[in-house]
Nucleic acid binder design. Structure first.
Length: 191
DNA sequence: CGTATTTGACCCGCGC
DNA sequence: GCGCGGGTCAAATACG
């Protein structure tokens, strides 16, 4: 016994250490679910810090251990926060993603995320060597606005302080792996 | 009938 | 060492 559970737990640990987490924000829940992959809900949990429950989704592709969590902003329930955990072990299905209109990327690998409303479109801050490549990917996609939270500024944006949303949520977001649909062009990227 | 979603319980890690 | 919070599983239920 415990083989499955064990694996899960190991994965969990790895999440903390190795697996990348990326957090996005979208304006609608449905948008968050239609990102090009097929997700299956496997859990729901109400958090202490938020009046809204958090939903847990897992990629339905066989052998793929990509997961994502969907939270709702307490300050702004019209916005949802999507946290991708892990990477897809397969290519992107035919449906295409464009996550969309308002879409924020938080990079909080070391500091608290701050909302950078920015003046328009900002490019994501990438902390790894492939940054350039990644930027290009963004450029090639349909993202119309990307707000990047870097930890240094005390920018505030329309939705309020992200830190409030939940601990751990934005803790170690490494852009070393980007949302799945952005990387499928460069599968070798994430080693 | 098959698949997806819901819900409660269990387990683990972290903080006090 | 204990308690709390978060994350996942598994069975039941709902829907297509």
């Amino acid at each position: 016994m415990a083989s499955v559970a064990d694996t899960m737990r190991m994965n969990n640990k790895r999440n903390k250490n190795n697996l990348s987490k990326i957090t996005y924000m979208t304006e609608s829940e449905s948008e968050s679910l239609e990102d090009g992959y097929k997700w299956r809900k496997y859990g729901k949990k109400s958090l202490k810090k938020s009046p809204f429950p958090r939903s847990y989704y897992r990629c339905t592709a066989i052998g793929c251990n990509a997961k994502k969590r969907v939270d709702r902003y307490m300050d702004d329930p019209t916005h949802v926060l999507i946290t991708y955990v892990g990477l897809h072990a397969h290519d992107l299905p035919p449906i295409l993603p464009p996550p969309s209109r308002s879409f924020n990327l938080y990079n909080n690998s070391t500091v608290s995320p701050k909302l950078g409303k920015g003046s328009g479109v900002q490019k994501p801050i990438l902390s790894d060597a492939s940054a350039g490549a990644r930027e290009r990917m963004y450029a090639n996609n349909t993202i119309t606005s990307v707000n990047v939270r870097t930890g240094n500024d005390s920018c505030v944006n329309d939705v309020g302080p992200i830190e409030d949303i939940g601990t751990g949520l934005l803790e170690d977001i490494n852009l070393s792996s980007i949302a799945p649909h952005y990387q499928h062009h460069q599968p070798t990227f994430y080693s």
